[in-house]
Design a protein around this nucleic acid. Sequence first.
DNA 1: TCCATGACTTCCG
DNA 2: ACGGAAGCCATGG
Length: 107
Amino acid sequence: MTDENFFEKVYAIARQIPAGRVTTYGAIAEALGTRGSARMVGYAMNGSGSVIPPVPAHRVVNRSGFLTGKRAFHSESLMAELLRNEGVEVLNDQVVDFKHLFWHPLK
DNA sequence: TCCATGACTTCCG
DNA sequence: ACGGAAGCCATGG
């Protein structure tokens, strides 16, 4: 393992996401200072399952509100289940009123 | 060191 | 408005 500073930053912000809220990879990337590394955010989240404390990766979706990362979970439906458990309505692998539930890391 | 991959985003047709 | 292609940064082989 080399310098995992980047991953730690992603995890830190992901853990700052309030329950019942969701954010986008680009927003996190921008909060890190690397706006173009939106893909890396998801890439880092891929290892979030092996990090402690646990990271609410299910609260992170793409800018369209789609659960693009649900495939990385143990079950593809688990991500939607977690969101619903927090009060976030998910329909057809998409967050309902995503625009309204959107949470900005810097805000 | 170079090439290939990816939980994204934006631009162009 | 919709679909396809390019750009982007970090990691691994």
